[in-house]
């Protein structure tokens, strides 16, 4: 029988060498899975698939950026000068740090140190909060000078050595800021969702729902959070620097 099932492709994943008597007592194993290995792998592949839908969602914005930048390079250079690269850089470091903390949270839950993991998740949420606060100041400093997305675009005034009024002489400056606000806006939305998600996971970690044997939710939230970071890694140089 075993020979029947071995072919040129790897054996079907349903055959796993897991001690099923252990599995029976695992409350988290859903009935349609054979093993928690299978359940974990499925969840993970599902998450990666979800992540690429996210990537493609953002890709639309990157296309818009590429097209308009290629058409109006001077406008984009001038408009990007008005963004504060120091705040952007700070936010980059903050997000990278939050990625680091969530990676460590997974590291420690794998070692069975749930409380360390919990505090690292809390740290991640805090860093995300910092990111949003910085973003808030960036947005308001733009709004004060009439730099709005789209039709309300009406730049004026000078602040911190940045001449917003000069933007008015660029015909396609509104496009840059539309793209800027939509991109960072959608990204910010993802940050908020991530905070809620990790908050939920953290509360479950605190209540002892996870262990070195079972931490799928933490790992998947981590993946999601890294993706948020990943998008920002591209947004930062494209919008603030070049």
């Amino acid at each position: 029988m075993a020979t029947d099932t071995t072919t040129d492709t790897p054996a079907a994943p349903a055959q796993t060498e897991v001690d099923l008597h252990d599995e029976e007592h695992l409350s988290h194993l859903q009935h349609h899975f054979v093993s928690s290995e299978q359940q974990f792998d499925s969840a993970k592949l599902g998450m990666w698939l979800f992540l690429i839908t996210e990537v493609l969602l953002f890709s639309g914005m990157f296309v818009a950026y590429a097209v308009f930048r290629q058409w109006h390079p001077e406008t984009f250079a001038a408009a990007s000068q008005t963004l504060d690269w120091q705040l952007g850089g700070l936010n980059t470091v903050v997000l990278l740090a939050s990625s680091f903390t969530i990676a460590l949270a997974i590291h420690f839950i794998q070692k069975g140190e749930a409380m360390k993991s919990f505090w690292l998740q809390v740290g991640t949420i805090a860093l995300a909060g910092v990111f949003l606060v910085v973003k808030y100041f960036e947005y308001t400093s733009k709004f004060e000078h009439g730099v709005f997305p789209g039709a309300m675009f009406d730049p004026h005034g000078v602040a911190h050595g940045v001449d917003y009024g000069a933007l008015a002489s660029y015909a396609y400056a509104p496009q840059f800021f539309s793209i800027y606000f939509v991109m960072t806006g959608i990204h910010g939305f993802h940050v908020v969702v991530g905070m809620i998600l990790i908050g939920w996971i953290a509360s479950r970690t605190y209540r002892g729902h996870f262990s070195s044997e079972y931490y799928t939710h933490i790992e998947l939230s981590g993946l999601y959070w890294h993706l948020v970071d990943l998008v920002w890694i591209f947004l930062f140089p494209l919008l603030y620097l070049v």
Partner: peptide, 21 residues
């Protein structure tokens, strides 16, 4: 398979940008 998934996703982003350009 997870790497494959991610690579294919990235590939299509590149296609989207290139062909539009």
């Amino acid at each position: 398979v997870n790497s494959l998934t991610f690579s294919v996703g990235t590939l299509f982003v590149v296609i989207f940008i290139t062909f539009t350009l």
